[in-house]
Design a protein around this nucleic acid. Structure first.
Lengths: 207, 207
DNA sequence: CGGCGCGTCAACCGATCGGTTGACCGCCGT
DNA sequence: ACGGCGGTCAACCGATCGGTTGACGCGCCG
């Protein structure tokens, strides 16, 4: 099987090469440190599976690169191998066409099996990632409404209830009602915690 | 020179072993995936330099492990090798006694030279980290103190003044004093705005 | 030596926030 | 047509926060 590596850390690429060198059925046909290199290399080397990090450093998002790869003619499977397990990252990666989602902290054997499974077209998730997903399924009510996200964005800017009310043309009372709902859905109990929780889940974006 | 690796990712450890295997003057005498393993291993193997990741996964902070290592009798140098370059991480690591701070994204050659420099007791910083530090120096007025950053991090977690006080073993009054200073330096006037401002300036990192 | 910045603490005040209860309206799906 | 959900508003209370003033000890640097 032909494998292509995309990771901005030389150390990680070297580690994958070293680890996978012992697996006879896996051949590493190329590496890339950023999105452009990845797309060019993959078009040229025609791998079966791409191992993709989501944090590519140069500001490029691995999710976008994944999407572009999947738009190629007869595209390879893309297996995400990254550090974090935020549900937003997982959802976005799957949405972009990723075949699986593994964590860098997983034991090497899980990685080997995951790559082989991905090559067969199977969906593969790290244990921690899988539990996260089903927890999310179980409570679909935790999705924030558009209005609540709007409130959250102003919240992140440091606005007080009064200012949020003014900017959204509603009363302070309504803002407080929304906040209580947001707290409930995010599992927090202060405005500041709500902001960080929302950022972690990529519900809102800073800057 | 005797080197010890601390990183919770098997892939990264394998990568370091592979990369450093080509350097004749560097011998890897041990590895650890978490804080406890690290302290036991280092006490037993007596390395000259420890390569330390700050994100150790099991909830343990690499900074704390670094501090403990430096409290050992005739401690090894600790060279931090991690993914991020937030001011908070850098300052806390240096404060804990780290000899240097390198980024995983740095070219291997920089890593090799860094390890050798650390063994000689020199302070070594990645280029990006160094620029960050001098930018800080140029405008000391707006630079937050280590203590203030510590407060900011708890703030970002949604902690109230009381909880911050409890966790830092100081009184609520002191926390409020710090907050006023932080507001002044960041040019904001609420706690939530302080968090977003700090994140944007990469003074702290979420998650 | 004398500042100066940092970190610590105290007491106080008004403003704001967190949380609750209860209510009304409009839209959507069964 | 009815129920459910999202969005709106109100009034209330205790808890917390924001901001101020004033104070003390410490280490660093000129």
């Amino acid at each position: 099987m032909r494998l292509f590596l995309v990771d901005d850390h030389p150390v990680v690429r070297a580690g994958l090469v070293a680890l996978l060198g012992g697996e006879d059925d896996i051949e590493i046909v190329g590496e890339a440190a950023d999105g452009g290199e990845a797309l060019r290399g993959i078009a040229a080397r025609k791998p079966d599976v791409v191992l993709m990090d989501l944090q590519l450093g140069d500001g490029v998002d691995g999710v976008e690169v994944t999407r572009r790869i999947r738009e190629l003619p007869s595209p390879p499977r893309v297996l995400v191998l990254t550090t974090y397990e935020s549900d937003a990252d997982i959802m976005r990666a799957v949405d972009a066409g990723a075949t699986g989602y593994l964590l860098k902290a997983c034991p090497p054997e899980e990685l080997f099996q995951g790559i082989r499974a991905a090559a067969r077209g199977e969906t593969v998730l790290s244990a921690k990632v899988a539990t996260r997903m089903i927890e999310r399924m179980r409570d679909p009510g935790s999705a924030l409404s558009a209005r609540e996200v709007e409130i959250l964005e102003l919240l992140a800017g440091g606005a007080g209830n009064r200012e949020i009310a003014r900017r959204l043309f509603i009363t302070e009372a309504t803002v407080k009602t929304h906040l209580v709902h947001i707290y409930g859905k995010l599992g927090v109990d202060t405005r500041t915690a709500a902001v960080t929780a929302a950022v972690e889940r990529r519900l809102i974006r800073l800057l």
